[in-house]
Every structure is written in structure tokens, then in C-alpha cells.
Nucleic acid binder design. Structure first.
Lengths: 350, 350
DNA sequence: CTGAAAGCGCTTACAG
DNA sequence: CTGAAAGCGCTTACAG
């Protein structure tokens, strides 16, 4: 692979001049510039980013450590992060913690070793010594979605309290009184906050959230299944189960289906985090939707600000309730625009 | 941040000795080793991976360029790739091409500039000059899922022909004769192969695949919606639509729902690629499942072989048909294990 | 077993 | 405008 030396000798200039034209430095003669560019072209030269990073102490790379790539919420977050970062001239390397603090630390360490310019993290836990130390040492950092209290780092997240209040109002209006929640890990802010928002909303209706109606999940599907089974085994099972993320809702659905129960006739279900498939599940699932892509973009902007020495703005965006059919909502008219007779396709008997 | 020099002076040895203990080089005295390790500990020293890479010409990083992170199939692939790579001592950095050749090239270029040790790619197209040149230049490379014919690179993929044959047999057995496909881009191998497999399977039953029943999609949801609408507008719409990936199946579902049609009563639907939500859609979707995680692992092993100068094995794993309810399959008994009277939860009227 | 030195491929003051 | 030189933080023959 051609190096800057090869280009220099091919163009008959010094490596300094090559470097200057490559970096758009103004003081280069037009003649030198053309010769260098021609040599670059001819040799198919590409600057070695590793060498450049060593010299400039900047990698133009952002690290993103998320709790679980398989969670569509985080996938979408990652996508918007990469998009915004690219627009600002950065690459992003993703570390998937799989909700495991040890894996999270592994990725943070690897990223730090590779000298990424800044770190975006959605912590799986309350903060390992490594992460705390990185923040203290001044690594440009911002938390997305989840955060660690007491650490002086901008936080970009969504506030689901109003949406959860709307959800509870909605459920109450439907006549439901026994409402349970599948919680996320207490070590995460979102794990705690969603329970608390739920509890406060219930209180506003004079409803209690007994311990038996708080199932401890870990944001993964299997825990949703397990917790739901526990609820169903209760002498007085809940009328509606609220899963604190979409994967636990999936697990809940698995459990319900395994027992041959119907949603919402036997048990209602709602989820935090909305995903495209919720429109087509049986039944369509009522959910709290976060402005995921906006969060990703805002997080990158905050991080790039920090990298540039600016303060970096914390952002909180509201989530909103999306009402569908999984909580016993009245059925919509099936054919709002045309009568069945006009149905465009008839099934032929072939 | 402490450098190797700091450690050396703190330990009273040369940087060479520090480097040796850090790299497990045998000829270091026990005494020097302990002093170095103590200094490393005390200074919280971590070797700069950028400098190390420049010197050793290895980054211990693999690039993975996938066509679409939002596609759960690729998300799962990416996860298994990262897992296997980590087990072998590599990091992976993911580039999401979003099914766009230009973005794909952007990522390949960035990855190459960063001197990744090897490249895993699922090409969005027939091969850009950049990718072809990289392969020719000897960059360790392997194709996963999709590949570029005529390029001498190992291919790790799954063969869906038998499963598609099973699918067609299944549909035929159910009495369906007018079968249509939402195809992927003709520039991709999977885009072409799935159509061809479908056509061959139909031929085995004396069935034709007319052009009107081949809709050109791009593996993204929106195209599935558009193509499905086209099918429905046909004088003789198909009885079953087979979507060549799960996102186009999602789009098809959107289109069907928007017209108020029922699946499978009005139109049947099947998909290539199985995802967890298909169990819970309305109706559960009959799909062709790939051994996704196995593919990811095999691809990493092949790539690491290439990096190590070994040949790197091409692998083809069979896909399999998962029959559910979206094609007019007879309904299963609802409560196979218990009678409705024993149903564990009754809905209280509160 | 150990250290001085070269060198990986760049960028950037410095001098001219 | 241009080049020689230093230096980023490592690793690794080479000599002892």
C-alpha cells in the first residue's frame, strides 16, 4: 500500500508538501498541488488513518456502548447516531453490552484503548469504576437513554412520565384497576423511572401498586416471560401488564400464548418503546413511543460539542402514548372507507 | 494519559522492557516484571492501541459492512459476528450501508483507511470498483449472506432452495396456485436466488411465475408495501405473496391492512427470514429461517483464517421452513393441554 | 536479560 | 511556498 513517501517521490516534492495539499493547507503552489494530486490518483493513495491519529491525537471516531443491539429501540438509536456522526465527519464504533456490566466494561476499555474522541453510553448499571474514572479523567462523554446519577456528563433521554400518565388514564378509563408492571433492572435509571412513573400515575387514580404487581425483569425477553408467568400464578392476577420495554413485552406475549390466554380478553398488555411490528401483532400493541432518532442525533451533537470543548447540552424529549388494541380498546370500524362489498380482492376458489 | 515512557521511568527500566512484559515476552527478569507491573498498576497505564497498530501493522479489528442494521436478520448476524470475533481477540466495527451502494463504499473506504485487519461484507450491489480493487489487492475479505460472483473470496451463506421448495409444496398442498414474490434487488445474489428458487419450485408443480407476479423490491419495508399494492391492483391478484425478506413482509402487511384485507383469508403471506415477532403477528407468519448466528460465526472464522494466511473456508448452511398460519394453514387446537374451563385466569369484572 | 536505536506513516512548528 | 526534522507511542531486531 502506497505511503506518503511514495506520493512525495512520485510528485517530486517533500512529504510535508503532500501532507499540506491533502489537508487543504493554503500555502501550497498550484503547481505542487496538481503534481501531488496526480500522484495520489496514480498510486491510489489513501492516507493511513492510524498514523494520522497517532500524530494528531484525534481519531474522528465516536464510541457508542449500548445495552443491547438486538433491541430494536437501540438499533434505531445506533442508526441515528451513526447518521448524525457521519454528517459531522465522525465514524462510530458500536459496543454491544448485552445488558452485561462486564461486557460493557470490556467495550469501554477497548474503545478507550483505541483512543476514540468521545463516548456515548447507555449504561447497563450504576456505573463501574472504569466508567466513573473515564468520566472523571475528562473523556468527552454523554449518556443516552440511561444515565448515571452524580456523574457530571450531559444526558440525552426521553421523559416518559406524561405518556405513562396518559397510559394509566387510558387504562383506568377502560375500567382496569389491577395494573402490573414488568420492570427493568433497578440498577438502570430507566428501570427505576418507569416503575416510579407508573406508581405515581396509579396514585393519581387512587390505585395502589402492590409488590406482587412489580415483576423484576432485565429488559430481555426471557425475563418478561418469567415475570408474566409469576403474575398469572397470583391468586388475583393483574388485568393489564405493562412491560417496561419491547423485548419484555415479547416475552410476556410468549407466556400468555403458551398458556392459551387471549390478549386483551384475558389479560391486557402495554409496552414501553414502540416498534413497527406492534401494528401487526395480535392484537396491535398499545405502547409508549420515544422519539428515538431525535435522541440519537441530539446525543451526537452534545458529544461533538464536548469534544470541541463546548459544554454539551443535556436534552430531555417527551415520549407519547400510542393507543392500539391490546388493552381492551373498542374495536375500530374494519372498513372505514369502503364497504366489504367493494373489497378489492376476492378469493377465488382454484 | 500515561505513556510507556512514564511507566518505564516509574519502574526504572527502559521502554523496551516495559513493552516486553506487556507483551508476555519470555526474556524478562522476574524482578523487572514485578516492578513494571506495579508501575502499570499505579499509573493506570493502558497501551495506546493506535501506536501499537501503527508499529505492528495490525489493528485486531474486523470491519463488517452490512446492508441494513434495522433489518433484524442483519442485527442478529452482527451480534454473532461480534461475539465470535471477541472470542478470537478481535473487535468489530460495523458499517451500515442502508442498502445504498454509495454508503457501502463510504464505509468500506473508511474501514480500509483505518487499516482493519479484515473485511466482512454483505454487498448491496454487484461490486463497486472500490470493493473489487480491495479484493484484488489482497485485503483479507469474506462475503456473508450476499456475495459477488467472480471475486475470489470465501462466501458464507445459507442455501434456501430446499426450504423454498418446501414452502411451495406446502402452499400447493393448501390449494394455492397463484403465487407471487416480492423480490430483492437483482444486483444482489439473494435478490436473484430467491426468485429463481421460487420459480424452480413452482415449475416442479407445473406452475408458472408470470412477470406480473414478480414485484421488484429493495429489501426495505416501503418497497414491500408498494409491490403488494401493485399485486392487489392486478385483475387477478395472487393468492399468496412471498416476501424475499422480513422487512418487505412488514410492508406487505401494511399494504394489506390499509386495504382492510385479511391474512390469510383474502391473501396469504410468507416471508424469507424468520424473526421472533412472527410468532405473534396476526396471523403468525410462515417463514424460511436461516441459521443466522451460525453464519456469523462461520464468517468470522473464515476471515480470521484468511488474516492468518490460511485459505478460509466457504460455508453454505441450509435454511428451513417454519410453518405457521399466514398461508391458510388449518387452525391448531387452541388449548392442546387443558380445556377452557381450566383456563388459569378469568377476567374479573371490576 | 536489557537498553539504545530505528522506524511504522503521518503532521507541524521552524527556518529559509 | 517549501523542506528537513522532530515527534506521536509503540515494537523489535541488534548488540552486549
Amino acid at each position: 500500500m502506497a505511503s506518503i513517501k511514495d506520493v512525495a517521490s512520485a510528485a517530486g516534492v517533500s512529504v510535508a508538501t503532500v501532507s499540506r495539499v491533502l489537508n487543504g493547507h493554503p500555502s501550497v503552489s498550484a503547481d505542487a498541488r496538481t503534481r501531488v494530486l496526480a500522484a495520489v490518483e496514480r498510486l491510489d493513495y489513501r492516507p493511513n488513518a492510524v498514523a494520522r491519529s497517532l500524530r494528531t491525537d484525534r481519531t474522528r471516531t465516536l464510541g457508542l456502548v449500548i445495552s443491547d443491539v438486538l433491541n430494536p429501540y437501540f438499533t434505531e438509536l445506533a442508526r441515528s447516531v451513526e447518521e448524525e456522526a457521519r454528517a459531522l465527519g465522525y465514524s462510530v464504533v458500536i459496543g454491544n453490552a448485552d445488558e452485561r456490566p462486564d461486557l460493557q466494561d470490556h467495550h469501554v476499555q477497548t474503545l478507550l484503548d483505541r483512543r476514540i474522541d468521545g463516548l456515548l453510553v447507555s449504561p447497563t448499571d450504576g456505573g463501574s469504576p472504569l466508567m466513573l474514572e473515564a468520566a472523571r479523567a475528562g473523556t468527552p462523554m454523554v449518556f443516552v437513554d440511561r444515565w448515571i446519577p452524580g456523574v457530571d456528563v450531559p444526558v440525552v433521554r426521553s421523559d416518559g412520565r406524561a405518556a405513562v400518565r396518559d397510559l394509566v388514564a387510558h387504562l383506568h378509563g377502560l375500567g382496569h384497576r389491577r395494573l402490573a408492571i414488568i420492570a427493568g433492572p433497578a440498577a438502570t435509571t430507566t428501570g427505576r423511572e418507569r416503575v416510579q412513573a407508573f406508581r405515581e400515575a396509579l396514585a393519581a387514580y387512587g390505585l395502589d401498586l402492590p409488590d406482587a404487581y412489580i415483576g423484576q425483569g432485565d429488559f430481555q425477553a426471557e425475563s418478561g416471560r418469567r415475570v408474566t408467568e409469576g403474575f398469572l400464578d397470583l391468586p388475583e392476577p393483574p388485568e393489564v401488564v405493562f412491560a417496561a420495554d419491547n423485548l419484555m413485552a415479547l416475552g410476556a406475549l410468549d407466556a400468555l400464548r403458551a398458556r392459551g390466554l387471549r390478549v386483551p380478553e384475558d389479560v391486557g398488555l402495554a409496552a414501553f418503546d414502540d416498534i413497527r411490528w406492534f401494528v401487526h401483532t395480535d392484537p396491535p400493541i398499545t405502547a409508549v413511543a420515544q422519539p428515538t432518532a431525535d435522541l440519537g442525533r441530539a446525543a451526537v451533537r452534545a458529544l461533538v460539542d464536548r469534544i470541541g470543548g463546548r459544554p454539551g447540552e443535556s436534552v430531555t424529549l417527551p415520549a407519547r402514548l400510542v393507543v392500539r388494541r391490546s388493552c381492551g380498546e373498542p374495536a375500530p370500524e374494519r372498513f372505514p372507507h369502503r364497504s366489504p362489498a367493494q373489497s378489492p380482492v376476492r378469493r377465488s376458489t382454484s
